[in-house]
Every structure is written in structure tokens, then in C-alpha cells.
């Protein structure tokens, strides 16, 4: 499994964790009972907080991955007792981090999956407002569809990497 596949997998797992944490926190019965009906502000605040957490976790994961990759390469160089180990580590890092036309194509293809899911979710959210009149439900459907879209984008990326393109 390449560095990009591992990194994508980690992003998917963190996305699932954050989505799960949001659902557990936002839909707990005691919280729902305490919220004034129809008030969107607490929902907007919760979503903004979780978006912030998501961005933070993604950045931390990328940093941790880079560190782990460097450590792994350093250990490998030490085990193989290579001369000029530092240069070899640098070269190996560059090799792993190369982004080429296939990566861009895979990114575009999987991004399309994410947009389709988010688009369907947006329309569903509007329909829910039209038929049920609940702005809270609309907001949640939108948030969840964007989150699920992002997860499926990652899954699509993994699929295309496994398939070749």
C-alpha cells in the first residue's frame, strides 16, 4: 500500500470518527430536549466546532504520517546499514511524496463522487424543508451529506488507487 493510500485510509477513519462523534453529541436525547425547537444557532455552532475539529485532525494526521514515514525510512536505512543514510532518506521521501498526473486524475474522479453525494444531500435537505418544514432537519441533512460525501470521496480514491486508475 502506497503512502497516499495509507494517508487516504487514515483520513477516512478520522472522518468516520468525527461523524460518529457528531452524531453521538448532537443527537443525544438530553441535548435535544434542552434545545429550543426551531433554533438554528446551537446547531450551527456545533457544526462549526466539528468542522474545526475535522480540519485540525486532518492536519495532525498528515503531520503524524510524515513523521512515521521518515522514522520508517530511517529505520530501514539503519537496518540496511546504508552509507549516506540521510540522503537516502531524503530521496525515499521524495519518491513517496511524488504527485503526478494519475494522482490528479484519481483526485478529480473521486471528487466528483463527493460532489454528487453532497448535491443529492442538498436537494434532499431542501425537499425535507418543503415537505416537513423543519430547518433543523434540513441543516443536519446538509451537514451529514457533506460529511458522507467526503468519506465516499476518500473511498473512491482508495478504489481507484487499488484498481490502477
Amino acid at each position: 500500500m502506497s503512502y497516499k493510500e495509507k494517508s487516504t485510509l487514515a483520513s477516512i477513519l478520522s472522518g468516520i470518527l468525527i461523524l460518529g462523534a457528531y452524531c453521538l453529541y448532537a443527537f443525544q436525547p438530553s441535548r435535544l430536549a434542552a434545545l429550543p425547537p426551531g433554533d438554528l444557532k446551537p446547531w450551527a455552532v456545533t457544526m462549526l466546532v466539528f468542522i474545526g475539529i475535522g480540519i485540525g485532525v486532518t492536519i495532525v494526521i498528515q503531520i503524524v504520517f510524515h513523521i512515521l514515514l521518515s522514522v520508517g525510512l530511517a529505520v530501514k536505512a539503519a537496518v540496511e546499514n546504508q552509507q549516506n543514510a540521510d540522503q537516502e532518506i531524503e530521496r525515499s521521501l521524495k519518491r513517496e511524496m511524488v504527485e503526478d498526473e494519475r494522482d490528479k486524475q484519481i483526485e478529480l474522479k473521486s471528487m466528483r463522487i463527493g460532489f454528487i453525494v453532497a448535491g443529492i444531500g442538498f436537494v434532499t435537505a431542501l425537499l425535507s424543508l418543503v415537505f416537513y418544514g423543519s430547518a433543523v432537519a434540513m441543516l443536519n441533512i446538509m451537514y451529514l451529506s457533506f460529511s458522507v460525501g467526503s468519506l465516499l470521496e476518500g473511498a473512491g480514491q482508495l478504489y481507484y488507487y487499488r484498481r490502477g486508475s
Partner: peptide, 26 residues
């Protein structure tokens, strides 16, 4: 070969296996 043409080894593997068609430039 990957280093000479500026792509990843995975891309060369995919091209060799016929799973990915490269751009004209590549």
C-alpha cells in the same frame, strides 16, 4: 524509469499493466 519521467512508481506499474493510459506528454 519513474524518476526519469517524473512520476511515481505506482503510475509506471499501472501503465505497464495496462490499467492506466498516460497523457500524450508522459
Amino acid at each position: 524509469l519513474a524518476e526519469k519521467v517524473g512520476v511515481s512508481r505506482q503510475t509506471i506499474i499501472a501503465i505497464e499493466a495496462g490499467k492506466y493510459s498516460p497523457t500524450l506528454e508522459l
